[in-house]
């Protein structure tokens, strides 16, 4: 009886470990092979998302720089930066 219980417990634990392991494993393709990321064409080796992040940081920096130098930001950019003050008078139509 004890042996049977121990066997059931061990089987359950093994099954749970297997399921957990599969969920964390990288996804394979239809044939069951694991998809490996394509090697970068650039020699620097940095990945695309990282490059994008750097690019956007550069854009933000340059925008701030333009403003501090007195360059006129586009009106659409201003629209994003300005929110109506809580107690501005509303216009009437």
């Amino acid at each position: 009886m004890r042996k049977t219980r121990s066997f059931i417990l061990l089987s359950t634990i093994t099954l749970l470990l297997l399921v957990g392991g599969c969920a964390n494993a990288p996804e394979g393709d239809v044939d069951g092979r694991l998809s490996v990321p394509e090697p970068s064409l650039q020699s620097s080796g940095s990945s695309e998302p990282e490059e994008r992040a750097k690019e956007s940081l550069l854009l933000e920096d340059s925008a701030t720089e333009n403003e501090s130098q007195g360059a006129v930001p586009s009106a659409d950019m201003l629209h994003k930066k300005s929110e109506q003050q809580s107690d501005d008078m509303e216009r009437l139509d």
Binding site: L78, K81, S82
Partner: peptide, 20 residues
């Protein structure tokens, strides 16, 4: 003229908040 006034009016907070 009222509508032209509204268009100019709506730009006021943008320039005020950006110190222009």
């Amino acid at each position: 003229n009222w509508l032209l006034g509204n268009i100019a009016f709506d730009r006021i907070p943008l320039y005020r908040d950006n110190g222009m």
